[in-house]
Every structure is written in structure tokens, then in C-alpha cells.
Simulated scan of single mutants.
Amino acid sequence: MDEPMESFDAGDGSQQNQESTFQPHYNASVAIASQSPSLEDNGCVGRFPDDKNSTKSHSCFTPLLRPGSMVMMILTEEDYETQYWPKLKTAIDQLLNMKPAAYSPISYEQMYSCVYKCVCKQFSERLYNDLLSHLSTHMVHLNSELQSCESESIPFIEKFSFLMHQYLQALAGIVPIFNYMNRFYVETKLKSDLNEELRKLFCTKVVDVHIAVLLRYLDQVSAVPFAVSPPTMASMVKNLYALNNDYSKLNPGLFSRYLPNILPPTDPALLEQYAEEARRVQEHISSMTDFTSRGSRSKRVYEDDISVN
């Protein structure tokens, strides 16, 4: 599928062809676009749902501008490098560095328009490669941040959780901006999806580099209640599984504490083994220094102070 081409109107919309009659059903841009099959066939101009005659010959349309008044916009490599890509890169950086739950004043309409023009002017491949290259550079910075606290379990887990959450939040803004490129290049030519490609990039460049250390630390702190807040632990494990469910195979016991159906179904033949595991867990809890056990017949603390009226 060829990439779409785009035309821009530079004529005077008030001029009309004297030999044609005015049809109020079409505005100037639709009447012009209908005469150019290359625009409609490639997706740059959409059809209106109520336009039942859109597939007919262009002779049935009435042009509102004289022939020759339409010019093609030219987008050079210099324009792309000095105007379009810098704007997009600035918006990407804002999204990547935005704190979770924060708001960034980005004009999505303007950014989408930049992507639209680049795609229509045959810059799809360049735009896609620049996007991946820029995100890869950002991930080098993420790795350096993680390496700076890799020697301590809790700071490392909290930093990793924050950076992963921040990146996934950024994708929720980046992917819509590049939606036109996704439709006409990534899906059509690469047979893939932009969101999946950017998530795989994060797995390859960041998660895979630190997954062994991360799972070891998660396993250690999970044995100490509230060493890391439960929401952080649950979010960390769920996000890892969503990025790549094969991570659960590296430590099924850890993932099974937060996600269902990780371990195989219960086998009745292993009931004695399950009972032994439960006994060992109870012994471990009883041996903890902060654990105190009370007899079942003992009164609850402050029971005498509870009013029954």
C-alpha cells in the first residue's frame, strides 16, 4: 500500500466556475479533493457517511475553484529536520519526563498534524526510526538511574516501579500522536502495532537488563511485611506480567502471590505436600520477632472497654 499523498489549497474559495452550478452539499475542500483520486485512494481525505455518490466520476462534482489554483505543499528533508521533528521530539520529551498523574500542556492537534504531513510526504520510515532512536536514547538514561541504586533492594524497587509507570504513562500520549503513522506505516508495511513495538523496546532495553536483580529483590522484600508498600509490589508485578508474561516463568511463586492462574491447578494427590507447606509458613510467621500469639480463649485487647449499649 502506497503512502498517502496530500494537497493543500492556496486559491480563493470565493471564485466559482461560471459553467457549473453551486451544490451546497459539498464545501470547497471536499469538492477539490473529490477530483483527485490519489488523495481519496490513499487515505488523506475521508468520505462523509452521507455521500452516496462519492465513488462516481468527478464530473458530477462542482469545483468551487478554477483549475490550476491548487498547489502541492513540498516538505524537504531540511523542513523535517528543523521544523517537524524538533516539535515532535519536544512533545515526546515532555511526556517521558512527566510525573505520574501530572498534566502536560501539549497540543495534540498540532502534533498529530505534524505526523500527518510527514506521512503524506513520504517521511514515514524516517519518522518511525527517529522515534525509536530517541526512545532508545532515553532508555540509556533510565538504565544509568537504575544502576546508581542497584546495590540496595528497596530504593532499586521503588525507582524501577516509578520509571516503568512513568514510561507506560508516556505511551498513552505518544501512541495517539503517532496514530496516523501507525495506521499507514507500522500496521500496513511492518505488520505490527506501534504500542506493542514501544513496549517491546522498553522490555529489551531496560527490563531484560535488570530483571534478574529485580526479581531477586522482590522475592527478598516480599518475605518482610510492608518493607515495600503493597500497592507498589502489586503494581510492579502486574506491569511486568503485562509487558511480557514470560517473566512470570522466572519466578512463578512470586507472581502467583499477586496474579491468578500462574501456578498449575491444585492436584488432590499433593494435599499432604500443601499441608506441609502451610505448616512451614505458620512456623516462619511464629518465629518472627514482632509476632505475638494469643490463645483462642484469651480476651481481645480492650474488650472490657467495648460498650454493649
Rank of each mutant, 00 (worst) to 15 (best):
Y84C: 00
P100L: 12
E125G: 02
T90A: 14
P105S: 04
P105I: 03
L75W: 02
K99Q: 14
L88K: 04
M111T: 01
D93L: 10
Y84H: 07
C120N: 10
F123C: 03
E109G: 13
T90H: 13
L127Y: 03
Q110E: 14
S113K: 10
D93S: 14
T76F: 00
E81K: 15
D79V: 06
K87Q: 03
L88F: 09
Y84W: 10
D79K: 03
Y80H: 08
S107R: 13
A102K: 08
N97L: 07
P86V: 10
M98H: 08
C118K: 01
Q94C: 03
A102W: 02
S104R: 09
Y84F: 10
W85Q: 11
W85Y: 11
Y108K: 15
Y108M: 14
A91I: 01
Q110M: 11
Q122R: 13
L96A: 02
L96R: 12
K121P: 00
D93E: 13
Q122F: 15
K117T: 01
A102R: 12
S113C: 10
Y108H: 14
E81I: 08
V115H: 05
P86D: 11
K87V: 03
Q94D: 13
T90P: 02
Q94M: 08
M111S: 05
C118M: 15
Y80C: 06
M111L: 04
K87A: 06
A91P: 05
D79A: 12
E81P: 00
A102T: 05
Y112D: 09
K117P: 01
M98W: 12
F123Y: 14
K117I: 11
Y112R: 15
Q83F: 01
L95C: 13
W85E: 09
M98T: 03
P100W: 12
L75N: 01
R126E: 14
C118D: 06
Y108V: 09
S107I: 02
S124P: 05
S113Y: 13
D93G: 09
A91L: 03
Y103A: 10
K87G: 00
I92H: 11
A102S: 14
T76G: 01
E77D: 12
L88C: 09
V115Q: 08
T82A: 07
Q83L: 02
S113F: 13
E78G: 06
P100G: 05
I92C: 10
N97M: 04
E125D: 15
F123I: 07
E125L: 07
R126H: 13
Y80R: 07
V119E: 06
P86N: 13
M98D: 10
E125V: 02
L95D: 14
Y128D: 05
T82V: 04
Q83A: 02
A102V: 00
Y112K: 15
Y103K: 15
K117R: 09
M98C: 07
V115R: 01
L95W: 08
Q110N: 11
Y128S: 09
K117W: 00
I92F: 15
V115M: 01
L88Y: 03
I92E: 06
Y128T: 06
C120D: 06
